[in-house]
């Protein structure tokens, strides 16, 4: 029974898409969480990865593995270029700029002939390993490995000099420069790497679903991802895993049990409403996310310090 449920293709798919979202979340968390560069256009990187791999494997007839690898490289490069505005604008302006770029890229997907226009691209081949097609459970296992590598790489990067540079840039861009950090380089780098994660997710998505169209790479995906990462906690891997899992599985859960009090046709709408509500509550009560640094405990010590400061009025410095 359990085994049957485990291999139920429907559940397997849910987990596969969950892992794809986790990869997306990890990349966005690098950009927005660790380096502090707000991005509302992450779905564009996702789409670039998906379309690159689809075009290379369908139209150029490349081996899917090669197509996926090249797709990651292509997304790395394009993301670096799309990250250039972060050198000039910050915060809310950067959010609007990335949002705009996301919309432009989606409309390119929809209208260009190379991306198959409104029809999209179909018959994207399934990769195979040792003569075995990676489908369902085997694809899931493969993705699981990719995810673990992805998590490990984020850990390593964020604990290295690169990670420290990103953190300083997030805290204070100008001071980062005057500490000898080449902010231009590190900002472009974080967009490139975060984008490459999304590119990998996109390529793996394309070869899973075998058909892609521009609808899968719209603003709703970018906004959903940002909610997931923010709610989980910016700058925290556990936070991303948690935020993505909860927000991704929640609607699936409703779909699964077909509650009579919810009209399933409006599930996507409810989903956005709930994400929105969660975001507002988060901003109010846990501005750093569930797993964010400076959680409840530290906020409390902050209060304690303040109290001490008031008490010790004779302290001057």
């Amino acid at each position: 029974m359990v085994l049957e449920a485990l291999f139920n293709p429907y559940y397997v798919d849910i987990v596969v898409f969950l892992i794809i979202y986790i990869l997306l979340g990890l990349g966005l968390n690098l950009i927005t969480g660790y380096a502090g560069q707000v991005s509302l256009g992450h779905a564009a990187f996702f789409g670039i990865g998906a379309y690159s791999s689809a075009i290379l494997s369908v139209k150029a007839d490349l081996n899917p593995w090669l197509a996926i690898t090249l797709a990651i490289v292509i997304t790395f490069v394009i993301s670096a270029i799309l990250g250039l505005p972060s050198l000039r604008v910050r915060e809310d302006f950067l959010a609007i700029t990335t949002l705009g770029m996301g919309l432009i890229i989606q409309s390119f997907f929809k209208n260009s002939s190379i991306t198959g226009g409104a029809y999209g691209i179909d018959s994207i081949p399934t990769p195979s390993l040792f003569g075995m097609k990676l489908e369902n459970m085997s694809y899931l296992i493969f993705l699981l490995i990719v995810m673990l590598i992805g998590i490990y790489a984020v850990r390593r990067m964020t604990q290295s000099r690169i990670g420290r540079a990103w953190m300083v840039i997030r805290e204070d861009d100008i001071v980062a420069q005057s500490m000898g950090i080449n902010t231009t380089y590190y900002k472009v780098l974080v967009f490139a790497i975060g984008g490459a994660y999304a590119g990998a997710a996109g390529a793996l998505f394309a070869h899973k679903v075998s058909f892609i169209s521009s609808d899968s790479f719209g603003f709703a995906v970018s906004a959903t991802l940002l909610s997931m990462v923010v709610i989980g906690g910016l700058g925290s891997i556990r936070g991303t895993l948690f935020g993505v899992s909860v927000l991704y599985l929640l609607p699936e859960f409703f779909r699964l049990f077909q509650f009579t009090f919810i009209d399933m046709n409006y599930l996507d709408m409810y989903k956005m409403m709930i994400y929105g509500l969660l975001m507002v509550l988060m901003m109010r009560y846990r501005p750093n996310g569930i797993f964010g640094k400076k959680g409840a405990k530290k906020v409390m010590t902050k209060r304690l310090h303040k109290k001490k400061a008031v008490k010790g009025g004779e302290h001057i410095a």
Partner: peptide, 15 residues
């Protein structure tokens, strides 16, 4: 010279 290179020359500021 870019700001991060000035620091490497040994000029450091307290903003």
């Amino acid at each position: 010279l870019a700001a991060h290179k000035v620091v490497k020359e040994g000029i450091v500021m307290v903003p």
